[in-house]
Structure formats: C-alpha cells, structure tokens
C-alpha cells in the first residue's frame, strides 16, 4: 500500500464518519441525498461479496465491513429513524436513481475482465460508483445553500477519488503489469463529476464564506 492509497481510504472513511456524525448527533440529514446513499449501499453490497471468498488483509476486510455497515446504517437512519427521516428533503431529492442501475448493469455484462458472477458484479459496482454521486450533486445544486458538514462530506469523497488517481499513477510506475482500464476510466469519470463542486467549495473556503452553489 502506498501513501496515496492510504490517504484515499482515510478520506473515504473520514467522509462517511462526518456524515454519520451529522446524522447521529444533530439528528438531521438535511441536504443529504437518500438516492446517493442507497446507490452506495448497492455499490458496496455488490463489490464486497468477495469478503466471503477471498482474503487480502485484515485492513482490507475491516474496511469492507465498515463501508458495508455504514452505508446500510445511513440508509436505515434516513428511511426509518423517527427524527432523522423528517429532515430528509424528499421533494428536492428527485433524481431517478433506478435509471442509473440498469445501464450500469448492462455495461458490466458487456464490458468486464472476466465473465464470472463475482467479476460482473464487481465491475457493475465500479460503474455504479462512478455515477452514484449524481443525485447528491443535483440536490446540492437545488438547495444551493449547503451546510458545512454536507459540503465537507462531498469534499472528502472527492478527495478520496483524487487520491486514488494518484495511487494508480504511482502503482503504474512502480509495479509490473499494473493495468486496470475499467477501474481507471470509471474512476476518472467519477472524479470529473466532482470538478464543478470542488471549484465552488475551494472558492467559498478561500473567501471564508458559506458554500453556495449557483442555480
């Protein structure tokens, strides 16, 4: 493991902890897209099936378990928690997330490394993760006034993706035969989706004002 990969994983972990902190302590999920959270739960559930079939390291297994647990916990809070669910912006969070799932699945059936059950699901999870942030970005754009925790959450998610790109570049130059076209391309698409948000996030941070997205 290199420093970029570790920084990426830690940003990812931190972003989820921020979101859990917000939901658990403030008992509010205002500004958080349930659609995106449901997509992430599906991403982790389809990607980490290998938790039962292979072992890479204790670190790997613990992180996978955390991502699975946290994503389903967040969905549970937003759907069923007595107080939290009332703060959910249901009317604003209208992105048709089901329309993302089928194309990603068809693409995974067509473009994959190996045609096995686990491999196709793994590939599906990569494609779906690439676009899973879209409902969240649309919701931010709609509400425009972004509260700090939600803004930081999306920022650290984007940081996680950026560090992964540095990690791939590093591995490409330091390891033999390290090519992962599918991972790279879906990762690049995913990171590109954050570019616009990053711009406004950094701008508001430099002017030390509240993050506001243009309509």
């Amino acid at each position: 493991m290199n420093i970029f990969r570790l920084a990426g994983d830690m940003s990812h972990l931190f972003s989820i902890l921020l979101l859990l902190l917000k939901i658990h302590t403030i008992k509010s999920c205002a500004g958080v897209s349930l659609k995106t959270q449901e997509l992430y739960a599906l991403v982790f559930a389809t990607r980490y099936l290998d938790i039962f079939t292979g072992y890479i390291s204790l670190y790997n297994t613990l992180m996978k378990m955390f991502f699975l647990w946290s994503s389903f916990t967040i969905v549970w809070y937003m759907r069923y928690h007595n107080v939290v669910r009332r703060s959910y912006d249901k009317d604003q969070d209208t992105f048709r997330h089901y329309f993302l799932i089928l194309p990603c699945f068809i693409l995974a059936l067509l473009v994959h490394e190996k045609f096995t059950f686990l491999e196709v699901l793994w590939t599906f999870s990569l494609y779906l993760e690439a676009v899973a942030i879209l409902p969240q970005l649309v919701l931010l754009q709609r509400t425009r006034n972004v509260d700090n925790l939600t803004g930081h959450y999306v920022f650290f998610l984007g940081a996680y993706r950026s560090f992964y790109i540095l990690n791939w570049i590093y591995r490409y130059f330091t390891e033999q035969n390290y090519y992962k076209w599918i991972t790279w391309i879906s990762g690049l698409v995913q990171t590109a989706l954050y570019a616009d948000f990053f711009y406004y996030y950094v701008k508001s941070w430099r002017n030390s004002e509240r993050l506001q997205l243009p309509a």
Partner: peptide
Amino acid sequence: EDDEDSHDEL
C-alpha cells in the same frame, strides 16, 4: 497471482 491481487483496492 493475477486473480488474488486484482481486487486489492477498496
């Protein structure tokens, strides 16, 4: 080897 560490990232 290829199989084993092809999915070593999260």
